[in-house]
Each structure stands twice: as structure tokens, then as C-alpha cells.
Design a protein around this nucleic acid. Sequence first.
DNA 1: CGTCAGTCTGAATCAAGCA
DNA 2: TTGCTTGATTCAGACTGAC
Lengths: 384, 384
Amino acid sequence: MASVFPLADLKASVKSDPRPGSRSDSWVDTIIKGDCVSALEALPSHSVDIIFADPPYNLQLGGTLHRPDQSLVDAVDDEWDQFASFEAYDAFTRAWLLACRRVLKPTGSIWVIGSYHNIFRVGATLQDLNFWILNDIIWRKTNPMPNFKGRRFQNAHETMIWASPSAKAKGYTFNYDALKAANDDVQMRSDWLFPICNGSERLKGEDGKKAHPTQKPEALLARVIMASTKPGDIVLDPFFGSGTTGAVAKRLGRHFVGIEREQDYIDAASARIAAVEPLGKAELTVMTGKKAEVRVAFNVLVESGLIKPGQVLTDARRRYSAIVRADGTVASGGEAGSIHRLGAKVQGLDACNGWTFWHFEDGQSLRPIDDLRSVIRSDLAKAE
Amino acid sequence: MASVFPLADLKASVKSDPRPGSRSDSWVDTIIKGDCVSALEALPSHSVDIIFADPPYNLQLGGTLHRPDQSLVDAVDDEWDQFASFEAYDAFTRAWLLACRRVLKPTGSIWVIGSYHNIFRVGATLQDLNFWILNDIIWRKTNPMPNFKGRRFQNAHETMIWASPSAKAKGYTFNYDALKAANDDVQMRSDWLFPICNGSERLKGEDGKKAHPTQKPEALLARVIMASTKPGDIVLDPFFGSGTTGAVAKRLGRHFVGIEREQDYIDAASARIAAVEPLGKAELTVMTGKKAEVRVAFNVLVESGLIKPGQVLTDARRRYSAIVRADGTVASGGEAGSIHRLGAKVQGLDACNGWTFWHFEDGQSLRPIDDLRSVIRSDLAKAE
DNA sequence: CGTCAGTCTGAATCAAGCA
DNA sequence: TTGCTTGATTCAGACTGAC
């Protein structure tokens, strides 16, 4: 897993089995080293299910920026983020988006993340190329960097665009019911709240400094992948960087393909992905349709890591137990469903408040999962 | 207030006093009836302080942007139609944005609101025209319309772009301190939470149906106007519609100019604005920080005797010390200079705010010399 | 072992005024 | 236009080390 694939070898491999849709599988679950567009052009047509792209933002920073305490802000000044003009950035964007569409299945979809520096150009280019925008999604950051000079609003979000390859492409995956069940039985909205990536999740080099300047949080990728793929799907990331997409895809039982130019990033991502333990099949079953009659309400706990997929919940007296799945449903015996339904089911009742019925192990004691919801609510309140 | 101004009369009026920056005032606090670009071209250059624009996103596009996926139009016509439509929309956007910039003061700023159907094109056009994006702001709706088909995320937000007329235009108004104070003493973020406009605020016709399809909530406009204008400023809305911008501007003690083509909307907006009662001066006072306060130099403290020549200043932890000299400079070791330069020097930094760095003995405690500046300012205020 | 205070840092288009 | 001086300015969360 996560082997590195030199571009020349990839071309030879794909040439030997070039049928669209077929694949020799040699490039699946690998990181292809090379230029984004060249690597994309070496892949078979219509061969991946979704694309998650975190392209350079084309930040145009002036001088240096200091905090009020005079410490220096470590800005993104990498060579890969430098473009001569908007025209150059647009040409770059067109090229990789066109290459992406050829590789994407007609039933697939693409996600692109950006900030106000680049996202408007990306969105307009997507439309110009006849991609069909399905949603724009706002990642609200719980802990964004402040505006130090007090001359603007605190830049507290980033924008993702979710699009299908054409207006007529209808087969894209959207796990509506699972998302709704996981969101307290109301539709998942277009604004998502997550912390930025730091702490132990943040990859660091031997010098203790961040391995990549723009590492995205796994929770963000988890929601993207759970929303728009099925288990076993192939997720392509043409700007692989620190490999968050690959790590989350592997954990969630999806395949990945990464494209990356810089060897340092490839090394960090390879090691990271190798350490990932995939979830089991039971945890990954995505609820589909209404026949399951299952309505869950706590995937935020799962996404935030307060509850982990595979974790066992019980009632207060440990008479009943259930296993948490990655999509925010729970399973027990042959039954699966929302915390509320399964709680009722195991007790033989018509209704049940899953939040107070199900408990989790906290050291030696059992605590209701509602306690964890309080933690999330507290975070949400702070973010408002 | 809120009289209607036929475009022909406006042209005659402005022609009689065409000096840029000057104004006969005849067009202030009126609704100009006519085409957006023509009306803008009839206004004096550099005459308004901010622009709030809620442009149509389906202009000349027929059903293209809103069309559900199941279109009966065949493929070739469909693609051609889309391409032509985006081009037409871009041309329209360029035209009204260019006309807006001529009318906008160099110290002004512009807000544009839109959804994913059009905001990416608007943002890219703003950048192409060398507007300088200051922030993108997300209006999160507390009560958005559900997604009925369950094929996408609930579209629960709209996007606003806030921009200055050029990268070098620095004088735009931003009431940072007032916003921060109003936000529990933390910086105002780029994501704002407001309900959509309904209930009694929603304008309705005699038939009881909504007078305008996209009436914006007054709270949204209030934050925009309070953030980026001063009392007495002129707020221009080139797509006036139901007149929310005018109503809020009047209530908040600002002037407005509206441009609108449809007589029905003009009638509704005129009546609405006429009923608005402006707030009093006391309610409108904007909290300002030190930037807007009277400048008090360090030597004023020495001259006034609050700080005495020979007195020793230290930093908050008494790691560094300096002696005050009669000319208002301070000295430490062999170095001397302003409170700022010496503060930077002793710390080995490029810059330092001497007002908050240097402290003086006050009984048993250390207090920043900035406290003494407040004393001076207080005395000055009493003398006014 | 826990607590508390201090430190560090994150995709940043981040000053204004005058000579 | 450019360069220099003055002086205005930070939130949340993880980590570190003292006690």
C-alpha cells in the first residue's frame, strides 16, 4: 500500500491494458510521482469514482506579516504556489481540470477546495468546461488564524465546490439518507464546521516543523468521502501533498490514487498511509434508501473522533450493546440503524431516546453519549 | 426621501454640475428608474462611499442556470446554449462592475452577493478588472429552503464578496473596533448567521404574495453598512429591488441611491423607505479604537509631567530598562531613540509598539505608559 | 498525577501618513 | 512613486514545564 509509482513505469503499465474502464490495478493505491497533468494523461479514461483536488491557491502575499507580539507568521511562500498572472493560473486550472474529467467516470464527481484567492477562478473555469456544479460547501474553521492588522474580517472559512462532469451526468453517488440520519435526521447543510489540522494529526518532519504547509483535516475528507463514494470506490487526488485523501480513503475502505511532484511530500504521505488501519466491513456499510428505516443522529461525534467507528456502545446496565459504524449508524445482531431506532429495537419498544439510552466506556464508568454531544455543542457555541 | 428620479432628469441635473466629486445632491436619497449601466453612467465620478449589489443570476440565461437535470433539450443545443449564456452573463457583469467603479470613491468598497450559480463568475470578473478582494463573507441561513429531491446538500448559505476598487486603494472604511465589541470582544468572522427574510419584514403585494422574489434580510444589510460605512456616507445599490439597502441605510443615518428598472419594485421600495424612522445620533455613534483617536506623542507625557525626565521605564517583566530624557526620547546602554525604536532595539526586533512595551512604576505595580496617554486624551476631551 | 501559566502557531492577498 | 517614521495589532488549541 502507498507504493510510489514512477510516471514512466505507469505509462508502460497502462499501455499494456488500455481499455477504458479496465485497469491493470497497478496504479491503484499508489502515489504517482510527477507533474499533475502528465500523470493524469497516463491514467486510463473513466477509471476513478471521485476526485478531490486541493490545488495551489495562488496567494499573492506582499511582505512579511508579524503578530502583535512581533513573532513572524510562517506564510505559504513555496515555489509551487507562485503564478505570473491570473491568465497563467487560469491556463493551469483548465489543463488539470480537463485532464481530470477524462479520467473521471461519467458517474463520478469532483471536489475542489480553495479560498477567495483562487476559488472564483476555479468555479468559473469549471462552468466554462461544462462541469455541473452540485453544491458549494463552506468549511467553517473553529480555530482560524486571526486578522492581525484589524483591517478585515477574520478569514474563517474555505470553500469547496462539488461538481459532476456534465449537466447530464446523473449517476453520481450521494449518500443522502446516511448523511441525513447522521445529522440528527435533518438534511446535511452546505456549511460544515471542523477544526484546522494541528496537534498530533499534523505531520511533522524530523526538525519538528510542519511537513506540509496546507495539510487538510481528516474529518473534512471523511465527510467528503462518506458523502460521495461507496466502499471500494477509487478516489483520485491530483495534488496529493501530505496524503490526507489517501489516508482517509484507506481508513474508510476506499482505494486511492495520488499524484505529487515533491519527493519529500511523497515520503511523508507514504509512511502516513502505511500506518493507517482500514475499518472493517460492518462499520463501513452505508445505509441506503428508506427501507432500512434507520435514522441516526451523531456522525459529528464520529467525525470529530469523540466516538470511533467500531466502538461498542451499551445501555446503562450493559444488557444491550451496539457497534458504531463510520457513517453514523449503529449495529447490533442483525439489526442496524440510528441510535434511536436500535435502542428501541433491542428493548422491544416503539421509541427510544438513543442519546440517553446508549453509553460508552469512559475509564471504569459508563457515560451516556449525550455527554459527548454536550462537548460538541459547547464547541459549536464557541464557534458561533 | 425616496423620491423617484427619471433617468433623463438625472442626466440634466448632473450635467449642470458635472465636476467629479461634487454633486448637486439631487440624486441622493432617490431611486433612479432605468437600466443599471445607463443610470450609473449618468452619476458623477467618485461620488459614492460603498456599493451593495445583488445582481440577477439568471439574466438572459433563460432556464439554463436553474434548469433541473432532466432537460429535454438535445445535447448540442444544450452545450451551445450554456456557453453563450455564460459569455453573455460575463459581459453583463463586466459592464456594470466597470460602471460601478467609476462612480465609487477610491476610498470606497463594493459588496456583491450571489450563490454558486453566479458568484464564481462575479468573483473572477472582479479580479480581472483589478478590484482587490478584501474578504468573502458567508451568509449562513438559519432557515434555508430544504433540498427536495435529496440529491444534494441543503443549500444553506449565500456568498458575498467585499472588495476595494484596486489593490492600492487603502482608505476603505472598516469599523473594526465596533464590530469586535459587538461580537463579545473577539474579531468578527467571515461567516455570519442570519435568518432569511420572512414574516412581517417580508414585503407583500395587495394579493398577499411576496413583492420581490429575493428580498434580503435587513440584518444582513445592517451589518454590511455598519461595518464598512460612516454616518452620512452614500450607499449605492444598482439592483435596488425591494429597497432593503435604502431602508437600512436611512435607518442607520446613511444616504442611499437606488437603481431599478421595474416600476412595481420602485413603488414598493418607495413606500417602504418612506416609513423608515432614522435612528438618533447617539444610537449611531460607532465605537472606534486608537486609530481614530487624537494622536498623543510621547513627549506630551514628558511635557505634561506625567512622565519625568530621568524616570526609569521597564518592560512588563523588568528584563529591560530605559531612562526618559527631557526631549521625549529614551536611552538604554549606549542606545537612544523613540520609545518604539529603543523597544525594538533592546529586544533585537525590527519593530515594537513602545506604548504597550514600556511600563512605569505605579505604587507596587507596573503599568504600561499607554495608560498615561489615556489620561491626556481624557483631559483633551474635557477641554473641547 | 493534575493544574496552571506561559509559549507557540495556523493557506494571510493584513497600515497610514508624510517627506 | 518610493521610502521612512510612527505606531497599531490576535483566537483557539495544542504543547511545555513548573509546582
